[in-house]
Amino acid sequence: MTEATTPPAIVFDDVSKRFGETVVLDHFDLTVPQGEKLVLIGPSGSGKSTLLRLLMTLDTIDAGRIRLGGELLADMTGGVERLKWTNAHLRRMRNLVGMVFQQFNLFPHMTALENVASGLRYVKGVAKEAAQDQAAQLLGRVGLADKLGHYPIQLSGGQQQRVAIARALALSPQVMLFDEVTSALDPELVSEVLDVMRELSREGGLTMIVVTHQMGVARALADRVCFLEKGRLVEQGPPGQVLDAPQNPRTQAFLRAVQLT
């Protein structure tokens, strides 16, 4: 009798995605084990953000198969839609994934506490008082216990991004996606968001995929760095290998250009 193995958190199997004539993902393969902290780098238009949008079911694939937590998220093998996206399926998949965007996307008319509690109340059906208690705990976890009653306009960019992280965590996702979450921040505010992400990365079980153009973020967080270009995975490996001694000429050119900016 063999032991049951834990399925990967995410599998992209021969996935292609186009927008009109533009190929965004080109027969793309990627497996992300449970608990891995994966950082995606590459030039704009290389497919990084599209990969996240597919996991969030914000876009559909044109070919291939995606699995999330061992379950099929999308299946277009053989050019046939083999898995219909019912409302029940979409809800189940979206509950597995939390996403934090470059722009904070907080509700301006809600306090920090209300922003975090909203998902608990309206998605998970938690009663108001219990949702607010959980939201307060999450805001304390990201260092904002003293900002519960503040509105977004009263918070710095780094604080708003930490509220957004707490809001995503409120739904207890198995996978957290971060799309350029520090790029809109002033340099002195990056460290406070990075500290929260670094603390999350130490917690067992939570899988993280981070898209960034900031190599310091990649170096601080990643178990593995993947370099994408034109919808293909060009190079991958530990951050010290990919960032300090890249083997592919295209990766080398990209990193030289990033260092000059």
Rank of each mutant, 00 (worst) to 15 (best):
T6K: 13
V11D: 05
F12N: 00
D13S: 14
S16D: 08
K17F: 04
R18W: 09
F28G: 00
T31S: 15
G35N: 11
L38E: 01
L40M: 10
S44G: 13
G45C: 08
K48D: 00
L54H: 02
L54A: 06
D59Q: 15
A63Y: 00
I66L: 07
G70H: 05
L72K: 02
W85L: 13
R92A: 14
R94L: 09
N95K: 13
L96N: 12
G98A: 12
Q102D: 07
F104P: 01
A117N: 05
V123R: 13
A136F: 07
G143Q: 06
D146C: 10
P152G: 08
Q160F: 08
Q160L: 12
Q161I: 05
R162P: 02
A164C: 07
L169I: 11
Q174S: 15
F178S: 07
D179E: 14
V181Y: 03
D186W: 02
P187K: 03
E192Q: 15
L194F: 06
G204R: 14
T207A: 10
V217A: 03
A220R: 11
A220M: 09
A222I: 05
D223A: 10
R224T: 14
V225N: 04
E229M: 06
R232G: 04
G237E: 03
V242P: 01
Q247C: 13
T251E: 02
R256D: 15
A257S: 15
Q259T: 12
L260G: 08
